[in-house]
Design a protein around this nucleic acid. Structure first.
Length: 258
DNA sequence: GGCATTTGACCTTG
DNA sequence: CAAGGTCAAATGCC
């Protein structure tokens, strides 16, 4: 029984960017193959330096795929993704001109598996949001106290009838804890997701519908950030990309959301 | 009993 | 002042 957890990038609706479209498709394929390889390989390796190395390599491939997609998206503006979110409270919208709380390091994803991101979270609140049909739940890293990890996230079901149901996950701040199985900001694995079942079993648990999907979304604003080749010379490290946007964050809209 | 979640109150932000 | 974010006591589950 084969699971398919495609990294679905919201591609531009502008079909004139045909090459980008094709490239993104190919990278998605590579990502999916990486995911399958990970699911196949890691369980068969006994814990140790070899398994660690394999995990690291797979993580790096995933990062590279993500970065490449991001670069391609930067060249082809993604208006659709932005509209999709702004209309549905995805990235907490400015309601009637009201401004949301400013965050230094925030990004978001749309996913059907909001609790499977390689980190462990504890829920500390839930709130009804004015314009949204479903409540928003608030989670923080379980190492919030132990290791002073500032990472938090909110999970909110998208107001549509998608099957499987989709969730907007808004991440705030990078992890500082050493716990994580994964240090990349978004992880789409599902085969090995049993690592993080504990926290997801109780609240807001999505149905087990397949296929599980995560959409990588980029805003217009990000796509329009003029970047020089030097700025992108970041050793294929997505964290560095994140840092760049944090650096460029004079305007709160220069945010990376994924 | 311990732990995670729920929920209403309170706090912060714009 | 309204809306969103966080706290902490109450509650429920294992």
């Amino acid at each position: 029984m084969e699971e398919h957890s495609n990294l679905l990038v919201s591609t531009s609706t502008d079909l004139s960017h045909c090459d980008h479209h094709q490239a993104i498709k190919e990278i998605n394929e590579a990502h999916e193959l990486t995911r399958q390889l990970r699911a196949l390989l890691l369980p068969s390796l006994t814990a140790g330096s070899l398994a660690e190395l394999a995990r690291e390599i797979l993580d790096n491939i995933t990062k590279s795929c993500s970065l490449t997609v991001f670069l391609l998206q930067s060249g082809g503006h993604d208006h659709q993704a932005s509209k999709q979110l702004n209309g549905q409270g995805g990235r907490r919208p400015m309601l009637d001109g009201r401004k949301r709380r400013k965050s230094q390091n925030e990004w978001s994803i749309v996913t059907s598996v909001p609790y499977e991101d390689g980190h462990q979270w504890t829920k500390y609140g839930q709130k009804r949001i004015n314009s949204a049909k479903y409540p928003r739940s608030y989670h923080r890293c379980i190492y919030h106290k132990d290791q002073d990890c500032p990472a938090t996230k909110t999970v909110q079901k998208v107001d549509n009838d998608a099957d499987p149901p989709e969730f907007i996950v808004v991440y705030n701040m990078q992890h500082r804890c050493r716990s994580s199985d994964s240090h990349i900001p978004f992880v789409m694995e599902s085969a090995e997701a049993s690592l993080v079942k504990k926290n997801q079993s109780r609240a807001d648990t999505p149905s087990n519908g397949d296929p599980q999907m995560t959409h990588l979304l980029l805003s217009d604003e990000i796509s329009n950030v003029p970047l020089t080749p030097e700025q992108w010379n970041l050793d294929n490290d997505l964290d560095s990309v994140m840092s760049f946007f944090e650096f460029a964050d004079e305007d709160p809209f220069y945010k990376l959301w994924m």
